[in-house]
């Protein structure tokens, strides 16, 4: 078996240790003797979505977002949207998550149109929502996802998507409705960086399994020794709850 991972905009969206998510997916495949390639697709690079099984898009800075929006005006936007509709697996974090929605409206009323691949929108807020947080994973309610959020945008989900989790501690999508992140087909989107996957190995494995099953019809992941991961996860969970 083999997974081809595409890291979208690693040059622009790499702010919050997102590299950790790539390292984590790569290692957890390699430890199971599953081949893996990671291809970087930055601004200006063409995207042939058919070459990849799993897409990752991280968070970024406002300054770099402008470069990104220019690039997304081209064919790349359509390629990403089609891949999502086709059921390709994708993990989107923070800025990358917001980018998949309809638009971002700054708190002083300026609107930037985004991809519109997911039925959600984001509104800027003068106060940032920052801190360690925890939510219940919608795909497996026995899993509590710990992470770090840092966003000023409040995201509101439309009827076309469901949340990725329910908040236990922290702000989540908007600090109001108790939702966190978004799920649509095989897209996993969340505000959680920090990095998300290493200390939430069950989330990582579910994402890998989703991508492998899409490609091969059926996939089983052999268990790994997650003592270090569990210790990191539980240490933060114990602090929050």
């Amino acid at each position: 078996m083999k997974l081809n991972i595409c890291h979208l905009y690693p040059d622009l969206l790499n702010l919050y240790g997102d590299q950790g998510n790539i390292i984590c997916m790569k290692k957890r495949l390699e430890w199971r003797h599953i081949d893996v390639t990671v291809t970087l697709c930055g601004a200006g690079d063409p995207l042939n979505a058919g070459d990849y099984d799993l897409f990752f898009i991280g968070g970024g800075q406002d300054f770099e977002q402008e470069v990104l929006l220019d690039d997304l005006k081209g064919a790349k936007a359509q390629a990403v949207k089609s891949a999502i509709e086709d059921g390709k697996t994708m993990l989107a974090i923070c800025g990358g998550y917001q980018m998949l929605g309809h638009y971002y409206k700054t708190w002083d009323g300026k609107q930037m149109d985004y991809l519109g691949a997911l039925d959600l929108y984001t509104e800027g807020h003068p106060e940032r929502m920052i801190g360690n947080y925890v939510y219940t994973f919608a795909d497996d309610p026995s899993v509590k996802v710990v992470g770090f959020e840092n966003h000023s945008g409040k995201t509101y989900l439309g009827s076309g998507v469901s949340p990725m989790g329910t908040m236990l501690k922290g702000y989540g999508n908007n600090g109001e409705d108790g939702t966190e992140g978004a799920r649509y087909k095989n897209v996993f989107a969340t505000y959680s960086h920090g990095a998300l996957l290493p200390k939430n190995p069950k989330v990582c494995d579910l994402i890998l399994k989703t991508a492998l099953e899409y490609k091969y019809g059926h996939a089983e992941l052999s268990p790994l020794d997650d003592a270090a991961e569990t210790a990191a996860h539980d240490a933060m969970l114990g602090r929050l709850l």
Partner: peptide
């Protein structure tokens, strides 16, 4: 955050 540091190093291939 010692536990998280240990995990980071595990993923960096430092022998546990």
């Amino acid at each position: 955050r010692a536990e998280e540091m240990a995990m980071r190093l595990k993923y960096a291939d430092v022998p546990v």
